[in-house]
Amino acid sequence: MPLNMTNTPLEKVLEVRHLYKAFGDNAVLKDFSMDLYRRENVVVLGKSGSGKSVLIKCIIGLLRPDQGQINVLGKPVLDLTPAELDQLRVRVGFLFQSNALYDSMSVRENLEFPLRRHGRDKSREEVNTLVVEALTNVGLAHTVDMMPAELSGGMRKRIALARTLILKPEIMLYDEPTTGLDPITSREIVQLILKVQDIYNTSSIVISHDMSCVRQLANRVIMLVDGKCHADGPYESLMQNPDPIVQGFFH
C-alpha cells in the first residue's frame, strides 16, 4: 500500500476485483484487479482493443461487467440503484475520448448541463460563476458563447474537461485524453490535467498509449495485457522490467 510523506497509508478511493467482461465470445477483461489511492495518477496502458476503455466504462457504470466487484469511494457500483449511481457519478468525472460535447448546445449550455442535473438548488448567478471558473481553469473563458463546431480539437478537449470538472469530482477517468492531438496540444492537455489535479485534488485513472503522456502523468502504470494486469508499478521500474511485452511498450 502506498504511503504519504508522513508514512501513513493513503486512502483507497477505488478498488476493482476479479473483473470479467466479454462481448459475445470475445473476452475483454479476464480477472482484472486494481486499486487507486487518493491523489494518485494511475495510467492504464495496453494495446488498442485490450479493454482499457471497457474497464473505465465498467467503473462509471456505463457497462455492466459479467463478474467481479467495483468499489468507488466506498460504494459497490454494481449494487447501486440508478439514483445512487447518479449521486456517485457527481463525485467521479469522465473525460470521453471523443470529448462528447453536445453539438446542439453552446459551450455555456454544455457546462450548465451537469449543473442543472445535480445542482438544482443553485441560483443563476452561482451557476454562471461556476461556469466561468471552470472555463478560466482551462484557459478558455472567452469561448463561453461559442458552439462546439467552432472550436479546434484541443479546445474541445479543454471544454470537455471543464464540463467534467464543474461538479468538482474526487476521481477523474480520462479515456485517451491526447489521442488525435498534435504533440504541442497533447503536452498542453497533460499539463492541464496536472494543474487540474492540483486545483481539485483529484485521483485519476488515465487510459493511454501515448508514452510521452504516460511518462508525465503516471505515479503508477498498470499494463493491461490479455484482459489481465500484466505489470503494475512506477514508470521508472517498468522501464527496467526485462519482460518482453513490457519492453515492447517502453522501447
Binding site: 466504462k57 457527481v90 462528447a100 453539438d103 442535473r117
Partner: peptide, 15 residues
C-alpha cells in the same frame, strides 16, 4: 450522438 458518445456523456451527467 450515439457514435460520438454524447448519450453516454448524458448518462454520466446524471440524466
Amino acid at each position: 450522438m450515439k457514435v460520438t458518445e454524447q448519450i453516454d456523456a448524458m448518462e454520466v451527467s446524471g440524466t
